[in-house]
Amino acid sequence: MRFSRTLFHTVALSLVISAASLGAMAHAADKITIMVGGFEKQIYLPAKLTESLGYFKDEGLDVEILNEAAGVDAENQLLAGAVQAVVGFYDHCVDLQAKGKFVESVVQFSQAPGEVELVSNKYPDIKSFADLKGKTLGVTGLGSSTNFLTLYMAAKAGLKPGDIVTIPIGAGATFIAAIQQDTAQAGMTTEPTISRMLKTNEARILVDLRTVPLTEAALGGTYPAASLYMETSWVEAHKPEVQKLANAFVKTLHFINTHSGAEIAEKMPKDFYVGDKEGYIKALDAGKGMFTPDGVMPEDGPKTVLAVLSEFSKNVKGKQIDLSKTYTTEFVKNAK
């Protein structure tokens, strides 16, 4: 009898340990690393905001957010298998398909780039993109979305390849230094860098892509930009985790849509204000309309992106791109 009781306790203990081990494994499986192409940029606000609001934890996810200066570098980390997801521009999904790699936007954060082309006030004669002929233009990185958009607007303004030079100058302090030192005479950047340069009167806006109407005027349609994108093969193999991510981010987009810039700013790290909380809030209030309310891809958006890339990209031009494979709405439409 004593032997039976001892055996029972041993078996019961083994079952408890096994269950605990399985639970730990399940939790470990939910560990996801997301690379953001500059998480302090307001265009990528949902990444850090979701973490601050606790929505990842609410979904039982263990999410690590890593920061990379440019979207193209984040893309490279994804393709190398170092991270499971990227918060970056949707246009990478189109560009990569042209190179034979299948990546898709799972949650579409924005329907406008949230970027502007700033031009140094040392050059008062520059009134349009055509006037940038012979100038050096800053972008976050070569192969980045800012590079795509810069080359497109140059082509649209009648400039030929070689009429401008694009150089990588990042964002924030490195962007500002490049304009101040005349390394670049103009450049494409986001908030809060825009407000910082306008406040010091060192630069002015040449092209504004911060709202849907301004974007439609400049690019010919809605331009889906910031998104959560992943390799299609990973999405197919990890649908439960992807659904949890979609649930968390859709809640965040709803929060952005229903709260003021001041309320959102309170949830962000204070160093994101770069010493100007008032300016940060003002920029948020002016630009938060770029975000989608529900994470759904704008219906006409992918065609605009393809048209932009086809204008100048040797990778995309003349290629058959299946836009339906560059994004999915399955998860956002099933979000809680």
Results as ranks from 00 to 15, higher is better:
207 V>N: 10
276 D>W: 07
198 L>F: 04
155 A>M: 08
176 I>D: 08
94 V>H: 00
98 A>R: 02
313 S>T: 02
251 K>F: 02
119 V>L: 06
155 A>P: 06
317 K>N: 07
47 A>Y: 08
261 G>K: 09
13 L>A: 15
123 Y>A: 09
159 L>W: 09
152 Y>T: 05
6 T>K: 12
146 T>P: 00
318 G>P: 08
266 E>R: 08
34 I>N: 08
194 I>T: 14
44 Y>H: 14
13 L>G: 03
257 N>P: 00
42 Q>P: 03
181 Q>C: 06
22 L>M: 10
312 F>L: 04
267 K>P: 04
166 T>I: 06
20 A>Q: 10
40 E>T: 15
70 A>W: 05
183 T>D: 05
232 T>G: 00
234 W>K: 06
335 A>E: 04
310 S>K: 07
304 T>I: 02
65 I>V: 13
142 L>Q: 11
52 S>V: 07
100 G>D: 09
186 A>Y: 00
183 T>Y: 08
50 T>K: 05
189 T>F: 02
285 D>I: 06
255 F>E: 10
336 K>R: 12
297 M>N: 07
88 G>F: 01
181 Q>N: 15
172 G>K: 03
43 I>L: 08
213 P>Q: 04
49 L>P: 01
260 S>E: 09
183 T>A: 15
123 Y>L: 15
251 K>T: 01
179 I>D: 00
245 L>R: 09
52 S>F: 11
197 M>Y: 00
301 G>Q: 10
258 T>F: 09
36 V>M: 12
144 S>Q: 08
140 T>H: 11
134 G>T: 03
148 F>D: 15
143 G>R: 00
133 K>H: 12
93 C>L: 01
172 G>E: 08
181 Q>W: 00
182 D>A: 15
312 F>A: 01
2 R>F: 03
21 S>M: 11
45 L>D: 08
